[in-house]
Structures are given as structure tokens and as C-alpha cells.
């Protein structure tokens, strides 16, 4: 039987959508494929209100304090942070590369913008990822329809604003279908 739908508690501030936080970490030396990707990704929790979000987030490690090859994923409840998910299969993502030291602040600004519905693109946002790597960190924002130029442009402009990025920051859009073809995520 399906589990009951999570709701905001009495007196709490509901979010437009419920969200789930996931964590993944690649074992050193292991080659990534879609099977072990799915095994490595762990659901941390799901929340329906601002208060529930902070109860999770305040106890989580900040992404900038993670080491190795790790990712936090924040996705709408019911959407798995994988290309294969029905909501993602025709989608794509904006990729922003960050120099070391910026990950925690950028991630917090990004997820607050998502939870607060600052992107104004209807149902198009699927989720966001912060990827901690050795040389640099990467944030990405996933949307449903890679071919929808008006939506992807609006997401890019909102990202620039909420991340407060330097004007020369390089942003790249990649359709998941293209990532599948060249077998790469970044």
C-alpha cells in the first residue's frame, strides 16, 4: 500500500511541493554505472514544510565539509535523482562549476530558491545536485523539458541571480539524453 502523503504539521508553513534529500558517495576506485549509482544513493528524508526542512537541514553536514566524491540531491518527492526517472528522461540540467570554498553557500542559496518557488517555471523544476569533487565543486539544476528554451533560459537567469555568480562564471546546459550518449555526467 502506498505510504501516507506527508503534510505540513499544524501551524507550519507548507511548501508548494514536498521534497526529498538524497546522499551519494562513490567508493574510491570503483567505476560508476547506473546499477551501482542506484545502490549508492540513499534517501536522507522528505519534508513538506519550511519547519520540517530546517529540522533536517540544520543537522546535516554542510557540503563544503564533505570529502571525496560525494553528492547531495534535493528532488521533488517521487522523482528519483536519475536520468531514467520518468520526470527526467526528456530533461536536462544547468551545470555551474564552483571554485573550492563556495559550495556550502551556493547550495544553501540554491535550495532556498527552489523551496521558495523563486524559479517561476511552473512544474518544470525536478531537483538540484551539489557534487563535491577534488578540484572543484559543481551545482546543477534539473528540469523536465530540455527542449523548452524559454524555461531553461529563465532557470539560468534565476540561478545567476540567486547564486550571486561572478559575471564570467561559465554555465553549461546539458540534456540528459546527450549525457547518456557520451556516458558522462559532467
Amino acid at each position: 500500500s502506498p505510504r501516507p502523503i506527508l503534510k505540513a504539521g499544524p501551524g507550519e508553513h507548507p511548501l508548494q511541493f514536498n521534497y526529498s534529500i538524497w546522499f551519494s558517495r562513490r567508493s574510491p576506485g570503483k567505476q560508476q554505472n547506473s546499477t551501482n549509482y542506484e545502490q549508492n544513493i540513499k534517501l536522507v528524508g522528505t519534508f513538506a514544510s519550511v519547519e520540517q526542512f530546517w529540522r533536517f537541514y540544520s543537522h546535516m553536514v554542510r557540503p563544503g565539509d564533505l570529502s571525496g566524491h560525494s553528492d547531495f540531491h534535493l528532488f521533488k518527492e517521487g522523482i528519483k535523482p536519475m536520468w531514467e526517472d520518468e520526470a527526467n528522461k526528456d530533461g536536462g540540467k544547468w551545470i555551474v562549476r564552483l571554485r573550492k570554498g563556495l559550495a556550502s553557500r551556493c547550495w544553501e542559496n540554491l535550495i532556498l530558491a527552489m523551496l521558495g518557488e523563486q524559479f517561476m517555471v511552473g512544474e518544470e523544476i525536478c531537483g538540484a545536485v551539489i557534487s563535491i569533487r577534488f578540484q572543484e565543486d559543481i551545482v546543477s539544476v534539473w528540469n523536465k523539458t530540455a527542449s523548452d528554451h524559454a524555461t531553461t533560459t529563465r532557470i539560468r537567469d534565476t540561478l545567476r541571480r540567486v547564486l550571486n555568480l561572478p559575471p564570467n562564471t561559465i554555465m553549461e546546459y546539458k540534456a540528459h539524453q546527450d549525457s547518456l550518449k557520451d556516458n558522462s555526467s559532467f
Binding site: 504539521g9 501551524g11 508553513h13 507548507p14 519550511v50 530546517w54 530558491a113 521558495g116 523563486q118 540567486v162
Partner: peptide
Amino acid sequence: GTRIIYDRAFLMQMRNSPHAK
């Protein structure tokens, strides 16, 4: 329908609410 929109300042303020602990 109506969208539930929160700005960053409000969300940051909510961080300190007793319900968020």
C-alpha cells in the same frame, strides 16, 4: 492555482523558529 512563494530572508528567519528545531 496559487503558488506558495517564500523569499530567502523569510526562510532564513524561519530557521530560528521553535518549530524548526
